[in-house]
């Protein structure tokens, strides 16, 4: 499948006399294949928005290579800009214009037919409020308008930074459906969001960034599988058999954590071997359940941003790629 977005070794460094040098992007890589809905995840200050801004020519990179729809950017941005719709960070519009005026002016600048304005207003549910000034809009309505502006070009690649921000539950579901519909129509969607449940539901693949570097990427299932611990929860018919079961499993090389009414096993490739082993020792299983891992737990594990009771994690405290994954204050985090 051809790549519509490729980033290799992207670097962006901010230098400040007061705050020193910070690497917002530190050799970041990313690839998005055509027709996918791709999730772009990272904690606050990890470099997501810097990546998107750099990709779209708003920020000058210090190194690396980027390509959109097969064209090297930023050099070829004028060529591909008409095929890339994007919203970056919070929606920002001139507050005294109506939604229709805002979109109409963008359509004029981009040589998009005026009829497309009404189409996208209908698509994002702003048809009946299109004549009102943007300053009267709620955050969710501004978000819808931002998505409408990105869709105006009918792009091949749609880049949305936190599109569900401020949306009500119904709006989030509508947005999810819209993303899927767009992907089915052949559009590639890159979605940056912190609502990981949504990402897991609608994305085909993900890239996770932490401190300006990629820490995980690939199809969602693969990323989950890679970070699945192979944990299995076992209950026996008789609670009194738990110590014997612990002995048997430990002797077989399985890591066992005991609990009052069940055992947690780690590093189990095939749960069936557990059943067989226990049955051979006349211990009978009443429940054997693989513990599923979700995107949120993988994200928290990879970025080491899980909350710790009694500690207040600072925005730049995250994990270093290739390191031990221990959280700690490091440089980075500007401009993201």
């Amino acid at each position: 499948m051809p790549a519509v977005l490729e980033i290799e070794g992207l670097r962006k460094t901010y230098k400040s006399r007061r705050r020193g040098t910070r690497n917002a992007l530190d050799g970041f890589d990313m690839r998005v294949d055509a027709g996918q809905v791709h999730g772009f995840l990272g904690p606050n200050g990890s470099g997501k928005t810097t990546t998107l801004r750099t990709l779209l020519g708003l920020i000058r990179p210090d190194g690396g290579r980027m390509a959109l729809l097969g064209h090297e950017v930023p050099g070829a941005l004028p060529t591909v800009a008409g095929q890339v719709g994007a919203i970056v960070e919070s929606p920002q519009f001139f507050p005294h214009f109506s939604a229709r005026d805002t979109l109409s002016l963008l359509a004029g600048a981009g040589e998009v037919p005026a009829a497309r304005v009404d189409e996208v207003l209908e698509l994002v549910g702003l048809r009946d409020r299109a004549g009102e000034r943007v300053k009267t809009y709620s955050l969710g309505m501004k978000q819808r308008l931002a998505v409408a502006s990105a869709l105006l070009k009918n792009p091949k690649l749609l880049i949305l930074d936190e599109p569900a921000n401020g949306l009500d539950p119904g709006g989030i579901r509508e947005m999810r459906t819209l993303m899927r519909t767009l992907a089915e129509s052949g559009m590639t969607v890159v979605l940056s969001s912190h609502i990981l449940g949504e990402i897991q539901l609608i994305c085909d693949s993900v890239t996770i960034i932490s401190l300006g570097r990629r820490v995980a990427f690939g199809p969602v299932d693969e990323v989950l599988a890679q970070h699945s611990s192979g944990a299995v929860r076992v209950r026996l018919e008789a609670v009194s058999d738990l110590p014997a079961a612990t002995d048997a499993l430990t002797r077989a090389g399985v890591r066992v954590t005991g609990h009052p009414d069940h055992l947690m096993l780690a590093g189990v490739d095939k749960p069936a071997t557990v059943t067989r082993l226990l049955a051979e020792n006349n211990l009978y299983v009443s429940e054997l359940a693989p513990v599923a891992v979700d995107l949120e737990s993988v994200f928290l594990e990879l970025t080491a941003t899980a909350p710790v009771p009694g500690q207040h994690r600072q925005v730049d405290e995250s994990t270093k790629v290739g390191g031990t994954g221990q959280p700690g204050p490091t440089g980075g985090g500007w401009g993201a």
Partner: peptide, 18 residues
């Protein structure tokens, strides 16, 4: 000035990156 402060300029540059 209003274009810069309201983000309109950024929006426009996403459409016309020159």
């Amino acid at each position: 000035g209003a274009e810069w402060s309201t983000g309109g300029m950024m929006n426009l540059l996403l459409w016309r990156p020159k």
